[in-house]
Design a protein around this nucleic acid. Structure first.
Lengths: 361, 361
DNA sequence: CTGTTAGCGCCTTCAA
DNA sequence: TTGAAGGCGCTAACAG
């Protein structure tokens, strides 16, 4: 007999207080089955008086459903995911579902742990932006699926997983940005990339290989960059892409390097927010300014980007919509819909401001 | 009999597979009581083979504890809270607790709903940055406490609640910032404030009243502003404080107004991130620049603030530490410690960069 | 050391 | 329409 932990009144106590059987109390409180108006009123009054709240755990145990969605995001500290989450929450709440959020901070071990937490807590479905790269890194997601828990991918598709994925047109978005740069006259375009590759790719082939071994989004963005270059017949130069652990410090160093090249970069395209802040610092350090010395375009718009002087040209992702769509897809599956197992692609938007000009000279 | 929902194997199935009684299986899988090495191995093997995962719901039901902390933040989209959350997660995880996060988006109704979700899911304890202003807005928190669920406040203390609260020195932080402005020679210092007051306070008394009816943090920051003014014998001018719904748009308008005053503002102190971006836009609109025309200091440092040109002087809050401390306090209470019911105050830090100079002339 | 047994709070047949 | 009884998966006394 566990010590009194004040769990609050149970349905039996409410039934006793109302002078009815527990089943009757359960029916009115659970909102199912028939109960006469009078008894219903008595039960409601008793519940009110006692401050009754249903034990969701007990309820889930007997019904097998929790009306709860589990969400695993890669980094809740990233405004992108925070926005995504809001889209998910809004949609889930509107349909009567609670949301449990877990952040992995881009760490696969934490993602596995998070998945297990969600399985253990018996959520009805899962939305995940996974850090998994290949076949041997998706066992945890498979485990959830095997248990009959529907999973929807968001932001990042995973090739090894044949699931619904709600994403944006990363490749097109990147291509469009680079095309804008090219149209302005640039040919030496730096690419601040994400993946922590083992060693810097020195050929196009190695780069492509690295792309395939990276997060889907990263791969797509790289392909978009290459697409634009190819279309304009601009030769690819491995010196102009930064890969490797993308801390702001490293970005500063790498962009600095590209800026110091004999045939230096005249434009920089950043695939992440911290790529942009790092690039800005590198510019300042080199005594250069934008857009005249160097043109700049980055991913993920924000209030800050708009108030920079000059304001930054950025790619805005429809974050709220992305989350909302992911929730909808999952909720539909929970509602009985057959999973489409396809990619749902949303359009991003290039917001042209004032960080792109023609190259110097 | 609910349809097969593939909940995964139960302890009984594992026991059967291993050829032992369920209690034995439960003991080894639950990690309690004595089990002989041989049987233990057999059970473990069977569990492994079947892919057994304990049902956390069932476990919580019989033990009465969930090893889960519930966290209610005001706005997960605010990097401040995202950082806080990381501090909480890191600490909780280290002590074997899961964390459930709910965001209220500054809406009291959602906060109440969130609290109920946590009560219903039987979390062991709750950390909340509440939007509650006064006595009649804390019933939901009281309800949790009445059920024996320990609650710790974070970021915002609530006068009507006698609970442990982990906060920063908002008043001192604001005073220090304004003192820096005064030391630089400013006497016309604009204050971009938060609370959505009914009507703009036109006297010091009204302002103080508004402060008492606002979020604790907002009240403290206002008092700090006033402290600094008083110490320097600078008369308070209601025209220099902006209150009311703090959208970026409104900030632009209000700061614009302060900039257009005959005896215009020469410095602006912002209590929130969007206050700063709004002020920056207002400056640009007025054709003014910082730090020469107007000095600027804001709350909540970020990578962007550091790369602005010139870089912004900001107040950095120890977000991770704030979250970690809140989690520690709560976990200690869960561990049996007596709640101190006091304020745990952490120090913020004013990071001086280059947005403050002497006033023009 | 191991197995049996009785709940945790709720939902859900099944009779009455 | 209502109440009694059994079960969800697990823990925890209790015998053996």
């Amino acid at each position: 007999m566990p010590a009194d932990r004040g769990q609050g009144p149970t349905i039996s106590e409410v039934a006793a207080e109302a002078g009815v059987g527990r089943a009757t109390a359960a029916r009115t409180l659970g909102g199912y089955g028939y109960v006469s108006p009078e008894l219903r009123a008595r039960v409601l009054a008793a519940a009110e008086k006692l401050g009754y709240r249903a034990n969701a755990l007990a309820r889930s145990m007997s019904t097998g459903v929790s009306h709860t969605l589990g969400v695993i995001v890669a980094d809740i500290g990233n405004p992108f995911f925070a926005g995504l989450l809001r889209g998910i929450s809004d949609t889930a709440r509107a349909r009567g579902f609670d949301v449990i959020v877990l952040s992995t901070y881009e760490n696969l071990q934490q993602e596995i742990a998070a998945t297990n937490v969600l399985i253990d807590k018996r959520v009805d479905g899962v939305i995940v932006s996974s850090a998994a790269l290949d076949r041997d890194q998706v066992a945890h997601i498979r485990a959830a699926m095997d248990r009959g828990i529907p999973v929807v991918l968001v932001d990042r598709a995973v090739a090894a997983l044949d699931l619904d994925a709600v994403v944006i047109d990363n490749r097109d978005a990147a291509r469009e940005a680079v095309e804008v740069l090219i149209a302005a006259g640039h040919r030496r375009i730096g690419f601040v990339w994400g993946p922590p590759v083992a060693q810097p790719p020195s050929t196009r082939r190695e780069l492509l290989a690295a792309a395939s071994a990276s997060l889907w989004t990263d791969g797509e963005r790289l392909r978009g960059y290459l697409d634009a270059l190819d279309d304009a017949h601009i030769p690819f130069d491995p010196e102009l892409v930064m890969a490797g652990p993308k801390t702001e410090e490293r970005v500063v160093g790498e962009v600095g390097r590209m800026l110091a090249l004999p045939d230096r970069v005249t434009a920089v395209f950043c695939t992440e927010t911290d790529g942009m802040t790092g690039s800005l610092r590198a510019l300042r350090k080199a005594g250069l300014s934008y857009p005249d010395d160097v043109a700049l375009i980055g991913f993920d718009d924000s209030a800050w980007a708009a108030v920079m002087d000059p304001p930054l040209t950025m790619i805005a992702q429809p974050v709220h919509q992305l989350g909302a769509k992911a929730a909808e897809v999952l909720l539909d599956i929970l509602g009985g819909a057959e999973p489409a197992r396809t990619m749902h692609t949303l359009r991003s938007q290039l917001i042209q401001r004032a960080s792109v000009a023609a190259p110097p000279e």
